[in-house]
């Protein structure tokens, strides 16, 4: 087990007039090699939850274990934990600050005190993982890049720490469809080719559901659903609508067919799935 969370609660400004309960009794287990989507509205607590994973926030009550280590125990080396869990914030391009892309990506490894050689190796490796050509990019300023490229550099600057797990907060926010597809396919590659444990945090159900293997749905500080995307779309469609997250159009279509008494499988995620399902359930053979 990689991350184990026991009954964590979190309250902002405890004891102050602004006191707000953001996380309510969360229990969660995440294994090595999982590919998870964490879905919920702005303000549902998802960003707060992931900041607990690498000790940026401490729970008001409850426990968090990363590889068996209790994060709130005195004397825990949080730097070591942050090396294991790479957290990519929303709009990570807003945190770039170095003169060249090389220095930007080398920032993390440098802080680890690695030798020049090792740092260079890591920079090459990280840039390769996000599909940026080392020779073309290293000398350029990160501020001269397009939005999508800046985001990839920011991602590389986390990958160069060689985390075991990657958490991305809204990695596709504010990108156009192509930029979004690019970054999602890179994340998929990082998961499948390098065996990285990945958590995608998003409010965009559609694309994330297609991408991940396990879906966690958060609402008002609680995890209200946990399962494969197919299971959740099949069984909890109504609840998803109720919390205002919405379904992909094809899933909605299948549910509406089912509501009309048609025996169709409702756990479809993509147009491909829907097409196959419709063709399978055709009553009369097609005339051509």
């Amino acid at each position: 087990m990689f991350i184990h969370i026991e009954n964590i609660c979190f309250t902002y400004s405890l004891g102050m007039p602004f006191e707000t309960e953001v996380l309510k009794d969360i229990n969660l287990e995440i294994d090595k090699g999982e590919f998870i989507g964490l879905i919920g509205h702005t303000g549902c607590g998802k960003t707060t939850l992931i900041q607990h994973f690498n000790g940026l926030l401490n729970p008001t009550s409850g426990k968090i274990y990363v590889e068996g280590v209790d994060l709130n125990k005195k004397g825990v080396n949080l730097k070591l934990i942050r090396q294991k869990i790479g957290l990519v914030f929303q709009y990570p391009e807003n945190q770039l600050f170095e003169e060249t892309i090389y220095q930007e990506v080398a920032f993390g490894p440098k802080k680890l005190g690695l030798s020049e050689e090792k740092i260079e190796k890591r920079v090459r490796e990280a840039l390769k993982m996000v599909d940026l050509d080392y020779n073309l990019y290293v000398e350029r300023s990160p501020f001269s890049l397009s939005g999508g490229e800046m985001r990839r550099v920011a991602l590389a600057s986390i990958l160069s720490i060689r985390p075991k797990m990657l958490i991305l907060d809204e990695p596709t926010a504010n990108l156009d469809p192509q930029g979004r597809d690019n970054i999602l396919s890179e994340i998929k590659k990082i998961h499948y080719n390098f065996g990285m444990t990945v958590i995608l945090v998003s409010h965009n159900m559609e694309k994330v559901a297609e991408t991940v293997k396990r879906l966690l749905v958060m609402h008002r500080g609680e995890i209200i659903m946990d399962g494969t995307p197919q299971e959740i779309f099949e069984k909890h469609a109504n609840d998803l609508m109720k919390v205002g997250l919405g379904l992909p159009q094809v899933t909605e279509c299948m549910h509406k067919l089912k509501a009309k008494g048609k025996e169709v499988y409702t756990g479809v995620l993509t147009v491909d799935d829907a097409e196959k399902e419709v063709l399978k359930k055709m009553k009369k053979p097609l005339k051509r």
Partner: peptide, 27 residues
């Protein structure tokens, strides 16, 4: 937010002497 993001990338704002700390503010 930026502070947290840089901490996640390995930055350290708490240790070191006054000059190092000032330098650490650059990110």
């Amino acid at each position: 937010k930026i502070m947290k993001a840089q901490i996640s990338r390995g930055a350290d704002f708490e240790s070191g002497n006054i000059f190092n700390r000032a330098k650490n503010l650059i990110p």
